[in-house]
Simulated assay, not measured.
Amino acid sequence: MAIAIGYIIAGIGAFMAYWFSTGESRKTKLKIWGIALMLPISPALAFSIGLSYAISVENAWAGLIMWLIFPFIFFIGLTLLLLGIFKKEKEIV
């Protein structure tokens, strides 16, 4: 049940990020998706994938793969956030 809750939280986080980013500028979309990836999606998805993998290989220690998945997704979100903050908008003349 905990695995499903993790996937549900990640799905709701992705849906909310999509909902809030529709109709926004590219900079704002990058900021929203960066924050969404770092806060709700990254930990929930890492937890669910780690436990799913541990169950599939029938080894409890295999669940520690979540410690490798979490920083990977987190740094992708951090990169998106920093791009949204520091990217310059093109001026239309």
Rank of each mutant, 00 (worst) to 15 (best):
I65H: 12
S21Q: 00
M38Q: 11
L64V: 13
K27F: 10
I73D: 06
I32V: 04
T79C: 07
A54W: 00
T22Y: 07
L45Q: 01
G84R: 03
S52H: 06
S21E: 02
M38R: 05
T22H: 11
F72E: 13
F75S: 10
L83W: 11
S52R: 06
W61C: 07
I65N: 09
T28C: 00
L81T: 09
G50F: 02
N59E: 14
I35V: 13
G77W: 15
S56K: 09
N59G: 04
Y53M: 00
S42T: 11
V57E: 09
A36T: 11
A60S: 03
A46N: 10
I65T: 11
S48Y: 03
K88T: 10
P40W: 06
L39M: 14
W33N: 11
L30W: 03
S25Q: 09
K29N: 00
F47W: 04
I32W: 04
I35Y: 14
G77D: 13
F47T: 02
L82M: 08
W67A: 15
L78R: 08
P40E: 13
K29S: 05
F20S: 08
K31D: 02
F75G: 03
N59R: 12
G34P: 15
A62I: 15
S52Y: 04
K31E: 04
L83A: 03
L82N: 09
W67F: 15
G84K: 06
I55F: 10
P71C: 13
L39D: 03
S52D: 02
I41G: 15
G77K: 12
T79S: 14
G84P: 02
T22W: 06
G23D: 03
K90P: 00
P43E: 09
S52L: 06
L30Q: 09
I41Q: 06
Y53N: 03
E24H: 07
I35L: 13
P71S: 12
L83K: 06
G34M: 12
F70M: 07
S56N: 11
L80Q: 08
A62V: 09
K29I: 01
S48P: 01
S48H: 05
P43V: 13
R26P: 01
G50T: 04
G77T: 12
P40S: 07
I41W: 02
L68T: 11
G23Q: 00
G77A: 11
A60G: 04
F70E: 10
L64Y: 13
A36P: 07
S56H: 11
W33A: 03
T22I: 10
K27V: 12
E58L: 04
L51N: 05
K27T: 12
L37V: 14
G23E: 02
K87D: 11
M38N: 09
A60V: 08
S25F: 13
L45V: 05
T28W: 02
A46W: 08
G77L: 14
L37R: 13
L78T: 08
Y53S: 01
L64M: 10
G84N: 05
W33D: 01
L78K: 13
M66N: 05
P40G: 05
K27H: 12
L37G: 11
A36D: 09
F75V: 13
A36N: 07
W33F: 15
I32E: 02
F75Y: 10
A36F: 10
F47Q: 02
M66P: 01
R26I: 06
N59W: 03
G23W: 00
L30F: 05
K29H: 01
A46C: 07
S42G: 08
K29E: 00
L39F: 14
P43K: 01
K90E: 15
S56I: 07
